[in-house]
C-alpha cells in the first residue's frame, strides 16, 4: 500500500481516501445549539427569579400595581405553540411514511400556529402597556420574552427552509436529517415557551 518516501520526514504515497460518511452533522450541531439555548434561558430566568427574590425580601410588590396580566391571550398563545409541536412532529412522521402531501400540510400548519403564537404574544405585550424601564419586573419579563420570540422566529426560518426543500422533494426516510434538526429546534422553542409561561405568567409573584 505504501511506497518509499522521497525525503526525510515525508510521508509515503497512499491511494486516495474513500469518502467518509458525515454522521448526523446537522442534528448534532442543532443539539449543541439547543444546549447553548438552554443555558441562555437558564441565565435569563435565573436573573428573573433573583430579582423577584430581592424585591420580595425588600417587601416590595414584584408586579407593579397598575399592571394587569392578559392571562387569556397569553394562555391561548402558549397553548397554540404547544399544538405546533404536535404538527411539527407530524411532518417527520409523514416524511418517514413517504407521504409528501401530509408533510406539506404539517409543515404549513406548524408555521401558521407559530405565527399565531407570535401574534398572541405581541397582542399580550400591547395589553400589558408596560414600558421596559418602568420596573425590574418589566425589564426581566421583556428580556425573557423578547429572546424567546427571537428563538421562535429562528425556528420559523429553519422550518421555512425545510418546507421549500420538501417542496423540491429532497427528503425521504433515508434523507431526513434536516427535517429532524429543524423540528428538534422547533420543539426546543416550544419547550422554552412552556417554561417561560409557567415561570413568568403562571407563577408571577409566587410561590
Amino acid at each position: 500500500m505504501s511506497a518509499p518516501s522521497t525525503a526525510a520526514g515525508m510521508l509515503p504515497a497512499l491511494a486516495p481516501a474513500p469518502e467518509r460518511g458525515r454522521r448526523n452533522v446537522l442534528l448534532v450541531g442543532t443539539l449543541f445549539a439547543v444546549a447553548a439555548g438552554t443555558t441562555l434561558f437558564g441565565g435569563l430566568l435565573a436573573s428573573y427569579f433573583s430579582a423577584r427574590e430581592v424585591a420580595r425580601a425588600a417587601g416590595e410588590a414584584w408586579v407593579p400595581q397598575d399592571v394587569v396580566l392578559p392571562n387569556v391571550p397569553l394562555f391561548v398563545g402558549y397553548l397554540t405553540l404547544l399544538m405546533s409541536s404536535v404538527t411539527a412532529q407530524w411532518s417527520v412522521s409523514a416524511i418517514n411514511g413517504r407521504d409528501r402531501r401530509a408533510a406539506y400540510v404539517a409543515l404549513g400548519l406548524t408555521l401558521v400556529l407559530g405565527l399565531a403564537f407570535v401574534n398572541a404574544l405581541s397582542f399580550s405585550w400591547s395589553q400589558l402597556g408596560m414600558v421596559a424601564e418602568a420596573s425590574r419586573f418589566a425589564t426581566t419579563v421583556y428580556a425573557v420574552t423578547v429572546t424567546h420570540l427571537l428563538v421562535v422566529i429562528a425556528a420559523h426560518v429553519a422550518l421555512v427552509v425545510v418546507g421549500f426543500r420538501a417542496l423540491g422533494g429532497q427528503f425521504s426516510p433515508d434523507n431526513r436529517e434536516m427535517v429532524v434538526s429543524a423540528v428538534t429546534f422547533w420543539h426546543f422553542s416550544v419547550a422554552v415557551g412552556l417554561v417561560v409561561w409557567y415561570s413568568i405568567w403562571f407563577l408571577v409573584g409566587g410561590p
Binding site: F32, A35, A36, G37, T39, L40, F41, G42, G43, L44, A46, S47, V131, A132, E133, T139, T140, Y142, A143, V146, T147
Partner: peptide
C-alpha cells in the same frame, strides 16, 4: 464555554434592555 457563554449573553440582553430604555 458553550454552556457558560450564553449565560453571559443573557446578562447582556437584560443589561441592554435595562439601559436602552433609560434605566
Amino acid at each position: 464555554t458553550l454552556l457558560a457563554t450564553p449565560v453571559l449573553l443573557a446578562r447582556l440582553i437584560e443589561l441592554f434592555i435595562h439601559h436602552h430604555f433609560g434605566a
